[in-house]
Computed example of a mutant assay.
Amino acid sequence: MTAALISSAVMTHPVRKEQAEALAARLGLGGLAMDPDPDGPPSALRTALVAWAARTAAAGHHVVVQDDVAAPAELLELVTGSVARFPDEALIFYTNWHARNGAAARLAALAGAGWVRAVPEEFAPTLAICLPVRTADAFRVYARDSAERHDDELMAAFLRTQGRSGLLAVPNVVEHIGTSSINGHAAQGVRLAACPVGAADARPLLDHGWVLEELDWLPYMRYGEGYLRPVGHERDADPRRHLRWPEALPPTGLTEGRLWDAVRRYRPEDAAAEVGRLFGAAFADELWIHCLLLGRQAVDAARRPAARSASPRPAGAAGARVRAAALSTVGPAGLPPERRLGVTPEQSALMTGYAESAVRCGGLLLGPAGLGVAH
Rank of each mutant, 00 (worst) to 15 (best):
E89Q: 15
E77V: 12
V79R: 00
G102C: 10
T95K: 00
F93G: 05
E74W: 08
L78W: 12
G102T: 08
G114S: 04
L76D: 09
N101C: 11
P87Q: 09
E74K: 03
L78Q: 07
V64R: 00
N96P: 00
L91R: 05
A105G: 11
E121P: 01
G112Q: 06
V83C: 12
A70Y: 08
V79F: 00
Y94N: 07
H98G: 07
N96T: 04
A113I: 01
E74L: 06
F86G: 04
A104L: 08
A111Q: 02
A90Q: 03
A73I: 13
F86Y: 15
V64I: 15
F93Y: 14
T95G: 03
A70R: 15
L110C: 10
D68Q: 03
H98W: 11
R100M: 13
V116T: 13
Q66Y: 05
A109C: 04
H98C: 09
N96Q: 12
A113Q: 07
L110I: 01
G114R: 05
V79W: 01
D67A: 15
A84Y: 03
A118D: 09
F93T: 00
R100P: 01
L75P: 12
A104D: 11
W115D: 05
A118W: 01
A113G: 07
P72H: 10
V65T: 06
E121L: 02
A90P: 10
A109W: 10
G114F: 00
G114M: 05
A71V: 12
Y94P: 00
A104P: 08
G81W: 07
E121V: 04
V69S: 08
T95E: 08
T95V: 06
L75V: 10
R117P: 06
D67W: 11
A105M: 03
L76T: 12
R100A: 14
P120Q: 07
E121A: 14
A103W: 03
P72N: 10
G114V: 04
D88M: 04
A73W: 06
A104I: 12
V83I: 13
V83Y: 04
P87E: 06
A71R: 02
V69N: 01
L78N: 07
G114C: 04
V83S: 05
T95R: 04
I92A: 10
L91W: 10
V64F: 05
R100W: 03
N96V: 01
F93D: 02
V64N: 03
W115I: 04
G81Y: 01
V63D: 02
T95Y: 00
A109N: 06
A84T: 11
A109D: 08
A111V: 02
A103G: 09
I92E: 05
E77A: 15
A118I: 03
G81M: 10
E89T: 09
N96L: 08
A118H: 06
P87L: 12
H98M: 09
D67F: 11
F86R: 13
L78F: 13
G102V: 09
W115R: 03
V69T: 11
A105Y: 02
A73R: 15
L76W: 09
A99W: 13
A111S: 07
R85A: 14
G102Y: 05
I92W: 08
E121C: 11
A111M: 04
R106A: 13
L91N: 08
L78T: 07
A73L: 10
P87G: 09
